[in-house]
Amino acid sequence: MENPHAERQAVLLERIVKNTSKCTEMILELNHCLEEILRANSGVKTAADLATKYRKNVQYNLEATVGAVAASEGVRLEGQEDGSGAQR
């Protein structure tokens, strides 16, 4: 007994398979492209890391110097304050 539905479904399945294979291909290509981009951009990442490191270092040193200056100034200020306080 011939089932018209089965026939139609078979055709549909075939199409689906074809489409899926196409999609797979496309995805692979996309992956390839992305990989290349990532590789190409690794330099950017490196640069970014370097910049970040640099900024951190600068920040740290600035803070350290600022702290030191502040401390020294604070000491001076304290001394001045003390002096002024004493005067007052």
Partner: peptide, 11 residues
Amino acid sequence: REAAKFWTSFY
């Protein structure tokens, strides 16, 4: 990327 190259070399 070009800019990154420069900065990388710079650092």
